[in-house]
Design a protein around this nucleic acid. Structure first.
Lengths: 242, 242
DNA sequence: GAGTGGTCTAGACCACGAA
DNA sequence: TCGTGGTCTAGACCACTCT
């Protein structure tokens, strides 16, 4: 006799985890806020405390939550430190990360190019906002970059009162209600063109590290495209492999 | 009354984990071999199965072990695939990793320079072996690199019967008894010099991605230094941030 | 069917932080 | 002192692999 066994078995803790992610997505658990205790969550979801714990532990290892013994469980938010340690891999010759200083060059809106639309999951010619800025580390210009984000995600960003904060991801989270949770970067080497050379105060043709980043919010939805050109005379991009 | 509470509290599962790492280090659990079952380990270490599980889970998330339901727990070994997916971040324009083909240029021994000694934790002028090779992806020369490893770790490597295998980490593991478990890479952009240009079949001065890697074995001990120069016209270095 | 890891539970106790 | 997360246990049952 044919009996179909668990055709679509999904562990309880994963179902619980998905419920939790949906609370993060819809911001009923907002960045920075505290979650109910394990016991309360267990009662609410109708599972054991151990099962809740397993879901919480996975979300913690994905950096969506932070847990702290004696205090509670909190939704991870973008602080200067988090942006620095998770989303900026440039280090100096001592392997230390420095807080960058940003100088806005321009901010404007326009139509998404074909490749921008592809990277951001938009339809071509939809409106996007482009930010160009330069960044210094220890008072040396090191990065010149263009940031592209859909106008529908950040309405009015092109008329935002200046200066823009140093950490855009904090701005997205606080003023526009979406959180960057992960990113992918593609690195290549290029020669500085005239404009880049001026921004970085280097000779035309100087080799630069080009970093193309796509940033994602919960559930791997792309929200921002960023192309950075980095002068690597005194800094390098650190990558850890396991 | 003054009572000192847990002046150096260390969870049981961490102690178990350290014991397990020492078995990996001394190769009483060799790469590719199967571990005793959870129940046996629990009995042997005198702790509960849950505690053993927690230690095993952490080692699994650090890629030191692999677990497979119904089969058992195995010591991670270097296969072509593992080297490819964990230790080679170059992708093509479709974001796919390709198996590289290696061409040996030279292999020789000499004295460690000051910086090599620093990176490898050696004393200056100790003997090292240097391997220079070029690597192709889809028949296009993409990488030219120098690999430096202490002669004391790989005695006789400079007289090893050619050709060397494509995956050096497999060789280290099988013939020299040490395993690469993690690595750090520092990326910068440089201009191709004459020699590099010839190896990569590009013009002098072409911008190249320079990747300096230090590879570590268990317990973060450095074992290999590698400096790769990559032509990034048709490939890029992919980095995932979380 | 036997043996493995994976899930789930219930409960005890400990370390930590804040009031 | 209380509430939180962190550790540890013991046991039941399930899913998977191999023979």
């Amino acid at each position: 006799m044919d009996e179909i066994k668990s055709p679509s078995f999904k562990p309880l803790y994963q179902q619980v985890k998905e419920l939790m992610v949906s609370r993060l997505t819809d911001r009923s658990w907002a960045p920075g806020s505290i979650l109910p205790s394990e016991a309360l969550l267990a009662a609410e979801f109708g599972v054991s405390q151990g099962t809740v714990r397993k879901a919480l532990d996975e979300l913690t290892s994905e950096n969506l939550l932070r847990r702290s013994q004696g205090r509670g469980t909190f939704v991870t938010e973008h602080t200067a430190n988090r942006s620095l340690f998770h989303f900026l891999n440039m280090v100096d010759t001592n392997n230390e990360k420095q807080i960058p200083e940003s100088h806005l060059v321009s901010i404007s809106s326009g139509s998404a190019t074909e490749s921008e639309a592809r990277d951001l999951g938009l339809i071509e010619s939809m409106s996007v906002i482009r930010i160009q800025r330069n960044r210094s580390l220890e008072n040396i210009p090191v990065i010149t970059e263009v940031i592209v984000v859909s106008s529908s995600l950040t309405p009015g960003l092109d008329n935002y009162p200046l200066p823009l904060p140093n950490t855009l991801y904090q701005l997205y989270e606080k003023d526009f209600g979406f959180s960057v949770t992960s990113a992918r970067e593609w690195l290549t080497a290029v020669s500085a063109n005239q404009l880049q050379a001026e921004h970085l105060d280097v000779e035309l043709g100087t080799p630069l590290l080009r970093v193309k980043r796509i940033a994602y919010t919960y559930n791997a939805q792309p929200v921002e495209l960023r192309i950075s050109l980095c002068h690597t005379a005194n800094h390098s991009y650190l990558s850890e492999l396991t």
